[in-house]
Simulated assay, not measured.
Amino acid sequence: MRLATWNVNSALVRLPRLLPWLDERNPDIVCLQETKLSDEAFADALAVPLAERGYEFAHVGEGRWNGVAILSRVGLDDVERQLPGAPTFGDVLEARAVTATCGGLRVTSVYVPNGRTPDDPHYAYKLEWLAALRDSVTDPATTVIAGDMNIAPTDVDVWDPAVFTESTHVTPPERAALAELVGLGLIDVVRAKWPDHDRIFTYWDYRAGRFHQDLGMRIDLVLAGADPAGRVAAAWVDRKARKGSGPSDHAPVIVDLDEALDGDIGPVVPPPSTPKKLPPRR
């Protein structure tokens, strides 16, 4: 079974890339984030092409911002459209999580709040939201939480830690919240598969040619409980989907359970062509 997660940064804009990617990579379960569509608009644009490919879907959207979905061709049962106890930002319950049982796994697609800056109200909201995500896990063994976590787990997961000292994504409270989630019995399967690789990024800012220099961050994660984590045959970042015209600023993360469909390939496929030298580890 192949599971993938991808922050598409607008499903409608990315549709000419998303559908061919589904055909090429052939995933069984896909977690999407930042669809930026209402439920009605998502169905209008995607219901038919997804059905043609054998996918059911559950989507939670707002319209202009946020939005998450699960696509599945191995079952889609017991759908939950929000996290229990999820906080609001202002008076808005944002579209940031959807959960369903797919192929015997309890899968949650998440788009964790960005946090903006450590002194912004959005940062406190981010930590509250992460606490609700942690509390939502009732059976860690069969849980998969996949999506844009907006947290780089360690300094190895950013191209230059010094660049991020005044920003979110790397602060101790965020990383502690992520560690508490993992501490429930979940495994960061990409890092577990490739513990000694520094340059495993999933996001590259559109500005300043950062993708071409491979100046990125690893903020899109697949966290899996003992059952799926013990079945991982391959785990990698599909960097090819970030190349070319009109890409998202994120690349998909792909995890194969039981069988490595494309072989046990490297952590980033294809590898960067002109990476800028990284500073030494601290």
Rank of each mutant, 00 (worst) to 15 (best):
M1C: 11
T5S: 09
S10P: 12
L12E: 14
V13I: 15
L15I: 11
P16R: 11
P20E: 03
P20R: 01
L22Y: 00
D23P: 03
D28Q: 07
I29V: 11
V30G: 04
C31Q: 06
L32W: 06
E34P: 01
E34N: 01
T35A: 06
L37S: 01
F42H: 00
D44T: 10
V48I: 10
L50F: 06
L50M: 02
L50R: 00
Y55C: 02
G61V: 07
G61C: 11
E62A: 14
G63H: 05
N66T: 07
V68Q: 02
I70M: 03
I70H: 00
L71A: 02
D77W: 12
D78H: 13
E80I: 07
Q82G: 14
Q82N: 13
P84N: 05
G85R: 11
P87A: 07
F89A: 01
V92Q: 14
A95Q: 05
A95V: 06
A97F: 05
T99K: 01
T99A: 07
A100T: 03
T101N: 12
G103Y: 05
G104V: 02
R106C: 08
S109F: 00
Y111K: 04
V112K: 09
D120A: 13
D120Q: 06
P121F: 07
H122L: 11
K126R: 13
W129R: 09
L130T: 08
L130C: 06
A131I: 10
S136Q: 00
D139Y: 11
D139I: 10
D148P: 00
M149Y: 13
T154F: 04
V156S: 15
D160W: 08
P161D: 12
F164V: 10
F164G: 03
T165G: 13
T168R: 03
T168S: 10
H169T: 14
T171H: 08
P173T: 10
P173H: 06
E174K: 11
E174I: 13
R175W: 11
R175S: 05
A179R: 15
A179V: 07
L181C: 12
L181T: 15
V182M: 15
L186E: 04
L186S: 03
I187G: 08
K193Q: 14
W194S: 04
W194Y: 10
P195K: 01
D196N: 13
D198N: 08
R199Y: 04
R199C: 04
F201Q: 02
W204T: 02
D205M: 06
R207T: 07
A208T: 12
F211C: 10
Q213H: 15
D214R: 02
L215H: 13
G216S: 07
G216E: 09
M217A: 09
R218I: 00
D220A: 05
D220S: 08
A224W: 00
A224L: 01
A224E: 01
G225V: 00
A226R: 13
P228T: 03
G230Y: 07
A234F: 04
A234W: 09
A235S: 11
A235R: 05
W236Q: 11
K240G: 15
K240D: 15
A241Q: 14
R242F: 03
G246F: 12
D249V: 03
D256V: 05
E259G: 05
D262N: 12
G263H: 04
P267K: 05
V268D: 10
V268W: 09
V268M: 12
V269H: 11
S273K: 15
K276W: 13
L278E: 12
L278N: 08
P279C: 04
